[in-house]
């Protein structure tokens, strides 16, 4: 079993795009959550090794998800990457302040994401 990456992103196309970028690497499994809620449900059920999250999501947004992950003993050391658009500069800074490890600005080149994943998961 490969390592598992959770993608929290409300756009299904963006999810599958990130998913296929990861699938192309061959070594990783992907679990998708279409909002923060679903991510919260998935975290305790699946052994997730890394989280990739959008910031703007309905109900529970990316910042809230990051803050949760970083405050929870079970997950606080998970590598965490923000994928968001360039407009949300301020929000992204907050995400990093809350403990995200890296961020990618949409649109991004698949290799950038792949490099980050390799960096964190080896």
């Amino acid at each position: 079993m490969g390592k598992k990456i959770l993608i929290a992103e409300d756009s299904s196309t963006m999810r599958s795009l990130i998913g296929s970028t990861i699938a192309a690497m061959g070594d990783y499994d992907v679990v998708e959550a279409e909002n923060g809620f679903e991510a919260l449900r998935i975290l305790p059920r699946e052994m997730v090794d890394m989280v990739i999250t959008d910031i703007n999501m309905p109900d529970i947004n990316g910042l809230e998800l990051i803050s949760f992950i970083r405050s929870n003993d079970n997950y606080k050391s998970l590598p965490l990457v923000i994928v968001s658009t360039e407009g949300s500069e301020k929000d992204r800074q907050k995400g990093l302040a809350l403990g995200a490890d890296a961020y990618l600005v949409k649109p991004f080149v698949p290799e950038e994401l792949q490099n980050l994943i390799r960096k964190f998961l080896g």
């Binding site: 409300d10 756009s11 196309t13 963006m14 703007n56 658009t85 407009g87 949409k106 649109p107 991004f108």
Partner: peptide, 10 residues
């Protein structure tokens, strides 16, 4: 609008 921007950029 935000999602659309991100998507179309990709």
């Amino acid at each position: 609008a935000h999602s659309l921007k991100g998507l179309s950029g990709m």
